[in-house]
Amino acid sequence: MDWLGLIFGPDGWGGLLLNGAIVTILLALTTIPFGFGFGLALAVLKLSKSGIVRGLCEGYTTFFRGIPDLLSLFIVYFGLQALIDRLSSALQLTTHIELGPFVAGVIALSVVVAAYSSEVWVAALKSVPRGQQEAGQALGLDRWKTFALVTWPQLIRVALPGLGNIWMVLLKDTSLVSTLALVDLLRAASEASKNTTRPILFYSAAAAIYLIFSIVSGLVQTRLEKRANRGFA
């Protein structure tokens, strides 16, 4: 039963795994507002009257939905860094700005999540009849209030299942950031297994934690969907 000691013992690797798990969750949670927010903005632009704006947004979505998430991550990470370097040398800045792996991870994952979620948002936006908006205006609500009080509650109901799926994908996609030297759950498991030569134990432990996250997410999603659907039989 040496595996118990390897994980929970005083010199065990449980602490590292736990830290990694927290990083994974934080990464996913930090990505959500940016990714979903940017996705919603994209969706609104996709429904705009201007053909150029629509085309650009569709192009963005096609690009990031069509390439591997790992490649998106590298493109954003290396591309952004290269751009920052060029800009800072063009502006003759003396301080060297470097993207940390966490920030780079959040940006890269947000870019991908925005592309995925914009499709969900578009479908949800289209599902709310125009008359609802007009009714809100007729009641004298301003644009923001119409959106927050009339459109949004009807919108989120339709969007939640799709957004929930994207959250599940995101949770698993965070593991890709381990290739950028961020010590997330998977990276913690890698380090523990390299030091103990017990990869099966530690990767299984990591898998178990991911599984718990997925199962809990599923339960939360069901509750949220129930809540959003209250008032609809």
Binding site: D173, L186, S190, P199, S214, I215
Partner: peptide, 23 residues
């Protein structure tokens, strides 16, 4: 299907690739 859909593919790949070395 819960295991394979609920954990990252990269984790599964490590488990097989590095796990095979252990056994």
């Amino acid at each position: 299907s819960t295991f394979f859909r609920g954990t990252p593919l990269l984790c599964q790949l490590y488990l097989v690739y590095y796990g095979a070395g252990e056994i």
